[in-house]
Write a protein that binds this DNA or RNA. Sequence first.
DNA 1: CTCCGGCCAT
DNA 2: ATGGCCGGAG
Length: 220
Amino acid sequence: MSATSTIPDRLLGWYDRHARDLPWRAPPGTPAPDPYRVWLSEVMLQQTTVAAVKPYFARFTSRWPTVEALAAAPDEDVMAAWAGLGYYSRARNLVKAARAVAELGRFPDSEAALRALPGLGAYTAAAVAAIAFGQRAVVVDANVERVVARLFAIDEPLPGARRPIRAAADTITPAERAGDFAQAMMDLGATICTPRDPRCLLCPLAEPCAARASGDPARY
DNA sequence: CTCCGGCCAT
DNA sequence: ATGGCCGGAG
């Protein structure tokens, strides 16, 4: 890979080879997955690891294969199915949002409209817009925050660093394959650019990374 | 900005 | 046993 490859190109190339295949994902380059499944997985993933989410996701989607089905479910059934995941207000918001979507007749496809649904904040709205609808949204979760802080050596501590981090994330977010890009950033943060002992030797962004150049990437 | 939740890694 | 975590909401 040439030294002048762009960050999105490097990252997407890496994602094409290393994307994890997960039940709620569409493989790189293939048509976007069902927004309902993306949303459900994102809400579950906000609070639990991939391994813990898998069985819950499978049970939810087999029992309620569509938003409409979830919207029609009695609250008690959803709460019972959620038991063990914690953060029960998220399950309540899940049902509320499903009913709002059913009422609308379709899943909102813009970041702003998604943001208006209960339980969808800046992060989840951007993630669904990008991953399920292919829109260019700047998706920043805690993993991405760390990756971007390192890439640009933003050493101001959180929460002050949020605005510069977001601005920097904006500059590297591509118009094409925005969903894959977002998922790639999150995969990178989860598997390579980890909080402690980042694996820079395996990182597709090692060359342009300012933190790595500084010699102490874990400081960010 | 602060608070909150509840599982899970330490 | 304890607190870290990480989003959303007020």
